[in-house]
Nucleic acid binder design. Structure first.
Lengths: 207, 207
DNA sequence: TCATATTAACCAACCGGTTAGTTAGATACT
DNA sequence: AGTATCTAACTAACCGGTTGGTTAATATGA
């Protein structure tokens, strides 16, 4: 129980302030426990952060593949995944921010990449490669496409305060998320679906 | 001279480690000056960071509009801008990272947004709105499109260590940047250019 | 009683920021 | 010209407060 309270508090504060900005005393306060308890359950601040990230990844990893397993034709299942993805990130905002902080600091990137990012990336790449081979989508670079989709979605979550500042609206309300889903799926799919399948012809660009 | 040395050193370290991770003594060491000099020229660590960001924005702001002013038809000028944009970010990697740190911490976001982001955003939105009204591109949401493009490009720069980890290559070499330009322009333009102009028809999605 | 859980008090290192004082060169006065 | 004065640039040493982390003593409960 105490351990979970610590992890919950640490999750919020690490996500908010980043590793260097997060102070151990503040985490203990937020958890309502004595600071020494953090060192009873975790061997360092660093270890605590990794435990927070580890818990997130554990709770997520198994649910990821099922979102690639969706319905029949490949283009449609990519669209389904896109539709699911931003909502998923919006629901796990703390995790997205945690990953963003780590991406910038680069301190634990190896461990995270090995345990989470690389496997997920692999699943996505397989799906896209398959969709290309069946002719469901155009001959794009799978790697760049994945990075583009990740960027579009992750940036939207991370930059949400900026969105508010520019447009006034809160970009994380359900309707705004719904609109974002539509916008991204529209942009991506119209870039991926070959012109022929859209009752059209030519396209001059090389891959 | 000393002031510039401090700003240069601070730029590198702030971009690398973020505000909380950057230590004043390390900046002084990197600049090869006494720590007290930072407080002779700047009134606080915070003020120093703002000076670094201010210098960047000053050097950049005036050169932005010219990249929207490009050649005749609007769709083409958007493509030109896309082509220029990633290269520009890759050349100003430190600035991109600085902005990313600030985006996460949110500490000075108001000032930055007011001086830089909002005006630039406005230019982009005007261009897209114009392109829509002339029929050069489809009726997409300008705001979401901008966020998508920003995300695709900024994420590529910020996540470049991840790219290296996954694929082995350094994603910031000139050829890799060139490939990225192509991939992004291809994805975005094929999503933006109306099907009719690509010798095709239908498209059922609403805006 | 014995392991687990919890605490107050403590510590060395470090942090951002200050201070009192030095240096070297320009300025002003005789 | 010579010298007293001023000032911008610079420094070593220091300061109060904070930080991540430890410890020894204590409570709890099977």
């Amino acid at each position: 129980m105490t351990k979970e309270k610590i992890l919950d508090a640490a999750e919020g504060i690490f996500a908010d302030k980043g590793f260097d900005g997060a102070k151990v005393q503040k985490i203990a306060d937020a958890a309502g426990v004595n600071k020494a308890m953090l060192y009873y359950y975790f061997k360092s601040k660093d270890d605590l952060l990794m435990a927070v990230i580890g818990r997130f990844i554990e709770g997520i990893r198994d649910s990821i593949p099922q979102h690639f397993a969706a319905a029949g034709d490949t283009a449609r299942s990519i669209e389904t995944f896109l539709d699911f993805y931003i909502g998923y990130l919006a629901r796990n905002r703390a995790f997205v921010r945690l990953m963003a902080w780590e991406l910038l600091s680069g301190k634990h990137l190896d461990a995270i990449a090995h345990n989470y990012i690389i496997p997920t990336f692999g699943l996505m790449r397989d799906k896209i490669t398959e969709a290309i081979s069946t002719g469901a989508i155009r001959r794009v670079s799978p790697e760049h496409t994945i990075f583009s989709v990740l960027g579009m979605n992750i940036f939207y979550i991370v930059a949400s305060p900026l969105f508010t500042l520019i447009l006034g609206d809160d970009p994380l309300t359900p309707e705004m998320i719904r609109k974002r889903k539509q916008a991204v799926a529209d942009l991506v799919m119209n870039g991926l679906v070959p012109a022929e399948l859209r009752r059209s012809a030519g396209d001059k660009r090389d891959s």
